[in-house]
């Protein structure tokens, strides 16, 4: 732009005057436009500012304080003490372990099942809408209700407990048994989320053009080759999304383990912390013990974990995309 203007003054003045003219035109208009824009944005800016943006900063501040809700005036600055104490707190470490375990089990299984179900649904199947709806139902059902129902089904003598004795499991209340409680949570989470990821994969599959498959067929590729050489690479963006959302959702799991573990008035995370997740830990610290500085630090550690994992996943997929 600049070099053109320097070498040819004629063009410059001409374009300049045109630019000014249009700028003046916009000035009259734009004051009104800007006013309208901010009028339309106002409720969102106000409410999100007060109840989302400000609380994030507020939470960060109290994570550096010894802040008890029971005695807020006695709040003191303690630097990184809360963070240091958390990372030495065996209960929190245990909660991290449980959450990472959940992640390692739930995410690969649900991703695989979702992909298989979507692939089957994408072939010429009757009643596709029916199956899709059925898979999606658990996802829109209240996690609190799901937790309560599962507790009864996996109770001693419960219908699912009886069924599972066929596979050598004991007839015990799963939610209260140290060996089974964790896997009950795994099952509930997968059962709840599978439909959502199936629908995501289905849409990914449907966006792949039939022409590509036709071409592969003509070239003599078999079904397995087609899946690994064509379908899987083209589904990479969907897989990224499914993994990304799966990881974030699993890291934030709260309601299902909370309901299941507190059945009959037991402590959250029982039996013996085997179902304690990070978010349950923060919730209990904040609203049972009112130790809010400490709990806020836990919230930020969770946030940092989610953020880091997101970046790592993004970076990994970007790299593979390029190579």
């Amino acid at each position: 732009m600049k070099t053109v203007a320097n070498t040819n003054t004629g063009v410059k003045s001409k374009s300049q005057s045109y630019y000014n003219k249009s700028k003046r035109f916009w000035k009259k208009e734009s004051v009104k436009e800007i006013g309208a824009a901010y009028f339309l944005m106002a409720p969102f800016i106000l409410i999100a500012g007060i109840f989302i943006f400000f609380p994030i900063l507020y939470s960060l501040i109290i994570s550096f304080q010894d802040f008890s809700y029971l005695n807020p005036d006695a709040a003191e600055w303690v630097g990184f003490n809360n963070y240091v104490a958390l990372l030495q707190d065996s209960t929190f470490i245990n909660a991290i372990k449980n959450t990472v375990m959940l992640l390692a089990i739930v995410v690969p299984i649900q991703t695989m099942i979702a992909l298989i179900l979507a692939a089957v649904l994408n072939s010429k199947i009757r009643a596709r809408t029916f199956f899709r709806t059925v898979y999606y139902l658990p996802y829109i059902t209240s996690p609190i209700a799901v937790g309560a129902v599962m507790v009864y089904m996996f109770n001693r003598d419960g219908v699912m407990t009886q069924f599972m004795t066929l596979f050598g499991m004991d007839n015990v209340a799963w939610y209260a048994d140290g060996r089974y409680a964790f896997y009950l949570i795994v099952f509930i989470i997968i059962w709840t989320q599978i439909g959502f990821y199936t629908v995501l994969y289905l849409s990914g599959l449907q966006s792949i053009s039939d022409d590509i498959y036709e071409a592969a067929k003509i070239d003599g590729a078999n079904k397995v080759q087609v899946f690994f050489k064509i379908t899987a690479p083209l589904l990479k963006p969907t897989t990224f999304l499914v993994l990304f959302m799966g990881v974030i959702a699993t890291l934030q799991i709260f309601e299902q383990p909370y309901v299941v573990s507190t059945t009959g008035g037991a402590l959250p995370g029982s039996p013996s912390e085997s179902t304690l997740t990070m978010v349950m830990y923060l919730y209990t610290q904040a609203f049972t013990y009112f130790d809010m500085g400490y709990a806020s630090a836990a919230a930020f550690i969770i946030f940092i974990m989610i953020f880091t994992l997101t970046l790592v996943q993004y970076w990994y997929f970007e790299k593979r995309e390029r190579s």
């Binding site: 989302i52 109290i62 953020f307």
Partner: peptide, 13 residues
């Protein structure tokens, strides 16, 4: 991208 759990404590206070 912010997990809602971060908001629980400040909103309660």
């Amino acid at each position: 991208m912010v997990p809602i759990q971060i908001l629980l404590i400040p909103i309660f206070i």
